[in-house]
Amino acid sequence: MKNICKWIGLLSIVVTFILPFLFLLGQVELEAMKQGLLIATVVWFGTAFFWIGSKESKPTPDGDSIL
């Protein structure tokens, strides 16, 4: 299950990467690209929770970068 989610998630990320380039090259229409990105987004968040582990650290007052 975890592996399947991982591969589907990675596929959705590849789609997220490729779709804007396809629009740039005139291979897809703007609305189709927007819908594709939304579907890829839903798939990514739907699958990534199953295989991307939790980050256990809380930020210290001066920890992570924020800008």
Partner: peptide, 29 residues
């Protein structure tokens, strides 16, 4: 619920970078 957001941020991170990139490419077109 800081931990849940922290995990969510980890998950969102690669997707967000690609959406930023996509925004620039689409705007260019």
């Amino acid at each position: 619920g800081y931990n849940a957001v922290s995990r969510f941020a980890n998950i969102a991170s690669p997707w967000m970078v690609l959406i930023f990139l996509g925004c620039g490419i689409v705007a260019l077109k």
